[in-house]
Amino acid sequence: MQPHSSKRKPYQRELPVDWWLKHAFYTKYMIREGTSIAITIYSCILAWGLLRLSQGEQAWQGWLEALQHPIAILFHVLALGLALYHTITWFDLAPKAADIWLKGKKLEDKVIVMAHYVGFALATIAALIIITY
């Protein structure tokens, strides 16, 4: 307890609601978290496509045509950008969750990140080949 003569009066600063706009590092973090909104919408579009698929050929065709709408294209271009941002940030942070030791030395971050990008390139190429095959 403070003696009653204490002049202490700690001042508590409030965290502004827009704290994440005040510093580029925080803003980038929020964009990273925000990519989830676009990806959520994309998953819903796919789930909707699945529903249309179950309703027969015409319904499926309707879904494919709806995706040709300029707004749909615009959304997907935007979503692609955000999804790539997620990929980049995810790979960037991946080494922090890896604790791999070889001969008494920690595996270098660069190696882990590169391995992820190689995997990404392979997965992307594989997907494109499978779909056009």
Binding site: F25, Y26, L93, A97
Partner: peptide
Amino acid sequence: CTFVGYCSKVCPKGVDPAAAIQL
């Protein structure tokens, strides 16, 4: 922790708290 990662960035001694937490 939501893995903001700024802690490791500002540390003046090269400690990586974000990695410690993630592990």
